[in-house]
Amino acid sequence: MTLDHSPSPNDVAGIYEGIGPVYRTVWGPNIHYGYWENDADDSSIEEATDRLTDLMISGLAAQAGQRVLDIGCGIGHPALRLISACDVNVVGITVSHDQVAQATERAAAAGLADRATFQFADAMDMPFPDGSFDAAWAFESMWHMPDRRHVLAETARVLRPGGRLAIADVIERGPVSPEGRVVLDHICENYAVRSLGTVDEYQKALAANGFVDVEIRDISDNVSRTLAVMADAVETVRDKLADLVGEEQATSLIDFMRLSAVTPESGYLFLTAVRA
C-alpha cells in the first residue's frame, strides 16, 4: 500500500511523542527491534536491541574522530552507544523537538555532550554542506520518509566520497497475499508510514545516488520475534495506551503487533554501502 498522502513531519513526531513514552516504560530507552540469533536464543529485550544496534555499529565501521550523521536519531540511545564504541562525533537529526531535548539531556548525563549534538531537521532537506560527514546511518527511520530515494540523494550529498552508510528498515517482502496486505496496510495507516520499501527499491535507489559496494541482508527471521514480545509487554500497560488512543485502537495495535510477527510479508533488512 502507498498512502494517498505522505505523513508530515508532525505526523511522525506525533507517533513518537504520543505512544512512544508508553512503549518506553516496558521496552526501555532503545525503542528498536531486537536481534535474536535463533529460536533457542533467550536473550532479554535489552540484550536483543543492543545486539541489533551493535550490528549497525559494526556495519558502519566508523573510525575514531570521524563525524557521523544519525538520520532520525530518536532519543539518542544508539548514537551514544556508537560514540562509546567507536570514539566518533555524532550529529543526530529528528523532526521531534521533544526527541531533540531528550537526546541532548541523555548525552549530557552520559558525559558525551561534546561528542553528540542533536537538532531539529528534516532528512528531506538536510541543513548541512556537501561532504560534511564521514559516515551516516538511518536506524528504522527510512520507513517514515515521504521519498526514500530523495533522502538517499541528500545523504549522498552530505557524505564525503568513501563515506559509509548503514540502514536498518522495516520492508515489504513479496509476493503479498491478501492477508499480508491487510497487515502492511495497517502498518502504513497507524505508524506514519507512506509505504514500505523493498530490497529491489533500495538496490535501485542506492545505485542511482552513487552508492557502491552495497550489501543487503534480509534479517527478518532474526528480528520478527520483536513484535510478539512487544505486544506482550505493551499489554501490561494497556490502560495507559488506551488513555492515549482509545480502547479500540489500543486493542488493534496490540493485536496487529502479534499478527505482524508471523506475517512473512512484513520483513526487515540491514544494509551497508559506500558513497562513490
Rank of each mutant, 00 (worst) to 15 (best):
A136K: 10
N10E: 15
E140Y: 03
C73W: 00
V95M: 01
L269H: 00
L3Q: 15
A135H: 01
D114W: 02
R217T: 14
C86T: 12
T117Q: 14
T49E: 08
E46Y: 09
A135T: 03
T251Y: 05
R51V: 14
E172D: 08
R24M: 01
V176T: 15
S220D: 04
D54F: 00
I71S: 02
D87R: 13
F139H: 12
R24V: 01
E248W: 02
N30T: 01
L196K: 13
T155C: 11
V68T: 03
G20D: 09
E105K: 13
V26H: 01
N10A: 15
T226C: 10
K204D: 14
Y191K: 05
D54W: 00
I19F: 06
I254G: 07
E247T: 14
N222K: 11
W36F: 03
S44R: 11
A123F: 11
L184Y: 01
A273G: 05
A116W: 01
D213N: 15
G18M: 06
V274E: 13
G246Q: 14
I19Q: 07
P29F: 05
Y268A: 06
I167D: 06
I171Q: 00
N209C: 11
W137I: 07
V26Q: 06
A207S: 15
A250G: 11
S224G: 03
G34H: 04
P264T: 08
L184K: 03
W143T: 12
A166C: 11
R149P: 03
R160H: 07
S260A: 12
G131P: 00
D130H: 10
G111Q: 06
D114C: 00
E172S: 09
L82N: 10
H77V: 15
P129R: 09
P7M: 12
V199Q: 13
D213S: 11
H186Q: 03
H32F: 06
A242G: 12
I71L: 07
I71H: 01
L55P: 01
A110T: 07
G131Q: 11
D243T: 15
R194V: 05
H77P: 09
T25M: 08
A136G: 11
A138G: 13
K240P: 02
D147C: 01
P9T: 15
L196Q: 10
S6T: 14
